[in-house]
């Protein structure tokens, strides 16, 4: 059993050495119900952050609330765009629109309705942020502790130069 896992890891690691980390070609849905490819939503030269969240995920909401307070400054200084990628399934999807309005968030919201993008990126836990420069993945982070948004901002600044 252990040998098999180690073997798979070796394969995966050696594969990673070769690869460029591009965002997979997956369609997501806009709040208006339109199906769009994720690549078409990314900035060509600036940094985009995909923040995977759900209406029922408290740390996700804490993270997006915290960033919301400083988002204007971040945008002004780096031109970063944050996309709040909802992984809500149909049980809670209808809560997204009233919730983001009730919270007054300024993020672009996209829906990963049956978690296809989440799975393609092998994300198991949310909150999970993926930082992209163009369509290349430069940083990933899972979980949120209050104040961790400052560390995320350091990463954004580093890649915005």
């Amino acid at each position: 059993m252990m040998k098999k896992i180690v073997f798979l890891f070796l394969v995966a690691f050696s594969a990673t050495c070769f690869s460029q980390k591009n965002i997979p070609n997956i369609n997501v849905t806009t709040l208006k119900g339109k199906s769009v490819s994720i690549e078409s939503q990314l900035s060509k030269d600036k940094v985009t952050v995909l923040a995977f969240w759900a209406t029922w995920c408290v740390p996700c909401i804490n993270e997006l609330d915290a960033i919301s307070d400083v988002y204007e400054d971040w945008q002004e200084e780096t031109g970063v765009a944050i996309i709040a990628m909802s992984t809500d399934d149909s049980r809670t999807q209808k809560r997204i629109k009233p919730m983001i309005n009730g919270k007054g968030w300024d993020y672009q919201i996209l829906l990963d309705k049956n978690q296809e993008l989440k799975r393609a990126l092998n994300i198991t836990l949310i909150p999970h942020v993926v930082v992209l420069k163009g369509n290349e993945i430069v940083f990933r982070h899972t979980g949120y502790a209050p104040g961790a948004e400052d560390e995320l901002y350091e990463v954004i600044k580093k890649h915005s130069k």
Binding site: I5, L8, F9, V11, A12, S14, A15, T16, F18, S19, Q20, K21, N22, I23, P24, A120, L121, N122, I123, T124
Partner: peptide, 21 residues
């Protein structure tokens, strides 16, 4: 898996790989 590796070694552009444990 062998198929995957051979895919990877063919080219270094236009491809992406992601895995999770």
């Amino acid at each position: 898996i062998i198929l995957l590796i051979s895919f990877v070694s063919f080219s270094q552009e236009d491809h992406g790989i992601s895995y999770g444990f």
